[in-house]
Design a protein around this nucleic acid. Structure first.
Lengths: 254, 254
DNA sequence: CGTTGTGTTGATATTAATCAACAAGTGTGG
DNA sequence: CCACACTTGTTGATTAATATCAACACAACG
């Protein structure tokens, strides 16, 4: 990891004035409500890092000394079982916060999917900063609340949806993500870019890579999606796919 | 629901000085760091309610007008698919906060499992109160963080664990819950009380009631647990059961 | 070019779901 | 007090969805 001292993502280039439904960030920065003077105090404790694809920067069980703010790229967050089974609990793109945990050690690992830029804060320093910036605390609470809602939605998916519904949900959710949450160049409205591997998708959806592959092939065969390349999917019948995702419709074929 | 105006759970009878690993509450109140004067201001906006078993007090999709603090009893929190499939995302006992969501409507439903006492706060009033009580905001952030960790653990369970491992995890987690989180009288250290039905357990673990029943019977047959009554389970071999729960050991039998 | 990583497709195995029957407990009303 | 319905839980037989095992295609890369 290359280390440079630089301002964190304090002023967001994608600022739109609206909350992001996915990461909950209002302006995709840790402190959108903080003025320029405070901003410099924050920057003083932040270090900006680059993380190569495949490199992990948070390891489950390690002492939780840092707090991160993703500014570019995408990370996968996951937990492992002793025998290697893996559950990816989420993908974190620009604007996401990581390592918020109260406990002394990280409860998950994080690894870059694409080249990332992240801001690292010392958690001890962050703690004192939070006392000075109530607005920041408020933002973090909003973010955490939104992530909790997303986590519950994912529990519904993992516990009760079929493989077909899981893939449909995944594609719909990806297609609805705003540009700034993706961590890579967007396609058109119905073009979904998948920077992660089939293995990552499988571990995110609680399936095997074979089932992911087969299910996508089947959706393609039914004309719901196109797969021009491994990492690109075009949604052809958004309404139908959404119906499958939400379980109102099996989509003709199981 | 009977409605009475009363103090919320501001001073907790179970105060131990330590954080609760499950609900994250330090003293199982919304404002343990708030002094007596502030306490009265909070109480002024809270209403205490009783909820009968089987009655729901939060409905997914309804306008999120209230914020709740459980003071007694247990609720199940769940999401539904249109065809009736249900995922219970958690059980909320004394000290838990509900309805923290930023969005305008509730993202889940909540129904009492046992007779409950809950404190209801108007969310609009709560919002203004939070500005006055930074300590409360901090507490809520801690709580939300802890719930996020629990949610990720549950995703691992739902996505990657076998039925056997899910039941073992559930029993171990229940056995480790401190008295004040249970919402009912505790048994001895290794006696786990299950106030919820098999159907609730199944929907929490992403299984069917038949699989829950069969798996418990099998664990009993192996001498890992005893089932003196439907709602009581005694853990006989805690270490072995924990090994199954964490996936280090299949426990001899699949 | 071979090698490696990633993805697809096919054949088979296995887990857990489904369908079904029954047992036990609870409450109701005659 | 007992028949009855109703709910909840257990157990058995069978099915179905997905995992596993295996082969192969293809692209990236040294």
């Amino acid at each position: 990891m290359s280390v440079t001292r630089a301002r964190p993502l304090l002023v967001d280039p994608h600022r739109s004035g609206n909350d992001c439904a996915h990461c909950g960030a209002r302006a995709h920065s840790v402190c959108n409500a903080i003025d320029a003077r405070d901003l410099d105090r924050l920057a003083a404790v932040a270090v900006q890092l680059s993380v190569e694809p495949g490199r992990s920067f948070i390891d489950e069980g390690d002492p939780a000394e840092s707090f991160f703010n993703v500014t570019a790229g995408t990370a996968k967050l996951f937990k492992l079982l002793p025998d290697g089974r893996r559950q990816i609990t989420g993908f974190a793109g620009p604007g996401h916060f990581l390592g918020l945990a109260v406990s002394a050690s990280y409860s998950f690992s994080a690894e870059a999917v694409e080249l990332m830029r992240i801001c690292r804060f010392s958690r001890t320093k962050l703690r004192t900063l939070l006392d000075d910036f109530p607005a920041m605390e408020k933002r973090l609470l909003e973010v955490a609340s939104n992530e909790l809602v997303a986590a519950q939605e994912q529990m519904l998916l993992l516990g009760r949806k079929t493989a077909r519904e899981r893939l449909a949900s995944f594609l719909i959710a990806r297609s609805e993500m705003p540009v700034h949450c993706l961590g890579h160049k967007p396609g058109s409205a119905e073009t979904v870019l998948l920077p992660m591997t089939r293995s990552d998708i499988a571990d995110y959806l609680g399936l095997t890579i074979e089932t992911v592959s087969r299910t996508l092939t089947k959706l393609k065969g039914e004309g719901l999606i196109e797969i021009p390349s491994t990492e690109t999917i075009i949604i052809r019948r958004h309404v139908a796919l959404d119906g499958i995702a939400t379980g109102v419709d099996s989509g003709g074929t199981r």
